[in-house]
Simulated assay, not measured.
Amino acid sequence: MPQSEALTKTKPFVPKLYNVILHNDDVTTMDFVVDVIVTIFNKNFDDAVALMLKIHESGLAICGVYEKEIAKSKQQSVLKAAKVAGFPLKCSIELE
C-alpha cells in the first residue's frame, strides 16, 4: 500500500455526560419522588425508594447520567410533573 493511503488514527467521538439531580425540599412527598424516579428515570421500585431516601437524607441524589439533550429532557419532564402536581421539586443537571 502506498504511503499516501496510510490509515490515520482518529479518536472516536465520546459525548459529554450530564448528571440529572433531584433535590430535597420540605413539601414534595416521598411517594411523588418515588413515582417520578420510576416513571421518568425508569428505575424499579426498590431502586427508586433507595434514591428517594438518599435525596431525603443527603439533600440530593443523582437519578441518571445522560447525554446533554436527554438530560435536559429528563429535567424538563421532572419539572413539568412537579408543577402539575403542585410540588416545588427541584431538578438540576451538571456535567459529570
Score class of each variant (00 low, 15 high):
Val49His: 00
Gln76Ser: 14
Val33Leu: 10
Phe45Leu: 10
Glu67Asn: 06
Thr39Gly: 08
Val49Arg: 02
Asp46Pro: 00
Ala48Leu: 05
Val33Met: 07
Glu96Gly: 15
Pro88Asn: 05
Lys83Leu: 11
Ser58Leu: 13
Pro88Asp: 03
Lys9Asn: 13
Ile93His: 06
Leu7Phe: 13
Gly59Val: 10
Phe13Cys: 08
Leu7Glu: 11
His56Arg: 06
Leu95Thr: 14
Ala6Phe: 07
Ile40Trp: 07
Ile62Asn: 06
Thr10Asn: 12
Leu22Met: 11
Asn42Ser: 14
Asp35His: 12
Phe45Ser: 10
His56Glu: 09
Glu94Val: 10
Thr10Ile: 13
Glu69Asp: 12
Ile55Cys: 05
Pro12Arg: 15
Val36Asp: 03
Phe45Arg: 12
Val36Asn: 04
Val36Phe: 03
Ile62Cys: 11
His23Phe: 05
Gln76Leu: 15
Val14Leu: 08
Lys90Glu: 02
Leu60Gly: 01
Leu89Arg: 00
Tyr18Trp: 15
Ser58Arg: 12
Val65Gly: 07
Leu53Tyr: 13
Leu53Ala: 11
Ile62Glu: 12
Glu69Ala: 06
Ala50Cys: 02
Thr29Gln: 03
Ser92Lys: 05
Asp26His: 02
Val33Pro: 03
Asp31Cys: 03
Ser73Gln: 08
Glu67Arg: 14
Ser73Glu: 04
Lys74Asp: 05
Ser58Asp: 13
Phe13Ser: 09
Lys74Cys: 09
Val78Phe: 08
Asp47Arg: 07
Leu22Val: 07
Ser4Pro: 02
Lys80Cys: 13
Gly86Leu: 08
Val78Asn: 14
Cys63Leu: 08
Phe41Arg: 03
Lys83Ala: 12
Ile21Glu: 04
Pro15Gly: 11
Thr10Pro: 09
Asp31Ser: 01
Thr28Ala: 04
Ser73Ala: 09
His56Thr: 05
Tyr66Pro: 05
